[in-house]
Write a protein that binds this DNA or RNA. Structure first.
Lengths: 238, 238
DNA sequence: TACATGAGCCTGTATATACAAGAAAAGGCT
DNA sequence: AGCCTTTTCTTGTATATACAGGCTCATGTA
């Protein structure tokens, strides 16, 4: 089944399996259809479905076991922020609410921005927003995000309270995150952070700085995160 | 070139390219030989070399660019503990010294061990060791490790000060880490930790709990890490 | 019943090939 | 010289196929 539309076939297989896992149709511990069965279902051959399964495996959705099959893996609970999927996807059963502290605004890059910028990025300026996320009603995650303002028309109008930032970028602007780097510290809460998280100043807080590459050249996403790990923790799978 | 020995050909290609990057023969920004060139070098075909290149790409060693080639990626500095490679490999230029606090000893699992154990693991008991790592002479990382004591003869005799734990497991016991999960908190330093790190009690410290799966069934590695992020930080790529 | 054996499923590794699409250099035109 | 087109090299996607090796279960034997 050659691909007819623009999206590759293996990606279609990947997306459909992923959504079936996300929606709970395939539950943890279940065996996915075997590679040969998937071949028949999608009228394609093993290397193609294997590419989809490899991607799922890399994201931790499945574990592949020689001689047995592809086993749907542990659901991602905790705050799976270290994964690529945008926080909302990683929170599992916990109730997650997002409050926009600063609506998306266009602004030039700060003189002392922590990451190196390409000339094109500097020229284009940044879109800045900040959000506070509540898990089970508790303020847990403060996030400042800078996005290179390249080819993102009317971006500042989006409603990011309901929708994940990553989903918005993907669905409306064809921007997909591909890879990234992150740095992690434990720091003392400043007065402002302590107020926001409703904790005492100087209490330990998790601090992360992330730089995410996308499929668009020169379009990067920078995010500075502060996480209150009194009641929750950050988790990831690799 | 069918594989002659036990190791798959794509893995050989992977290992050789990886070591050439690690040793600095291919430097950051360099272009690796093209897929077709690698095919000729190893007398094989593109799917095979692509498998090796994909693995390198997943580990962040290279970035593949459509129409251009495979570009050697940023060297991993910081304390790349979040990657799979064992701390020693991730520290880059920093001088890293390891002090064994507790030599490897066999012991039963604690009653209240934080992770779920398989019956086989419980039966086998654990090997415990703890180490304190110095970066540039500063005590930075305290690590408690539990390994399921399965098929690891004379393991307690190894000298782990010079060699990475992961290298030892791989070279002497054919144990390779395949995947894992980790949880991260910011906590206050206990008195013991503060003494070890030479900081004041209650200062923020990074705490991680990791569970690593290996290629051997029932053999897991559990490690509990405490990291002083006053002077350094944890970094990873994905 | 208990235990080995083998058949049949599964994924892992590998070859051979084809065309599409991005990127860059070579070449020709104005 | 400066610009555009073409060529060529690169990776991306896909088909078709083969055998190796792990896992499970049914079958047959002691």
């Amino acid at each position: 089944m050659q691909r007819s539309s623009g999206t590759p076939l293996y990606k279609k297989v990947f997306e459909e399996l992923k959504s079936k896992i996300d929606s709970g149709l395939y539950k943890m511990g279940d065996l996915l259809p075997s590679e040969n069965e998937l071949c028949k279902m999608y009228f394609t051959t093993r290397p193609t479905v294997r590419q989809a399964l490899n991607d799922l495996s890399n994201l931790g959705y499945i574990v592949r076991q020689h001689g047995k099959g592809s086993i749907v893996s542990e659901p991602k609970n905790g705050l799976g922020i270290l994964s690529l999927k945008g926080s909302t996807a990683g929170v599992g059963k916990h109730n997650l609410k997002t409050a926009i502290i600063t609506k998306p605004i266009k602004q030039p890059w700060s003189e002392a921005f922590e990451f190196e910028l390409t000339p094109e990025e500097k020229e284009a300026g940044a879109i800045y927003l900040s959000r506070l996320r509540y898990v089970d009603g508790l303020p847990t995650l403060f996030e400042e995000t800078y996005i290179s303002n390249i080819d993102l028309p009317r971006f500042t109008l989006h409603n990011l309270e309901k929708n994940s930032l990553f989903d918005t970028l993907k669905n409306y602007h064809d921007v997909e995150v591909k890879e990234g780097e992150q740095k992690i510290w434990a720091i003392e809460a400043s007065k402002e952070l302590a107020d926001m998280f409703n904790i005492k100043p100087k209490k330990p807080v998790l601090h992360m700085k992330r730089r995410l590459k996308t499929n668009k050249k020169n379009l990067f996403i920078y995010s500075f995160l502060y996480c209150n790990t009194q009641d929750f923790f950050i988790q990831d799978y690799f």
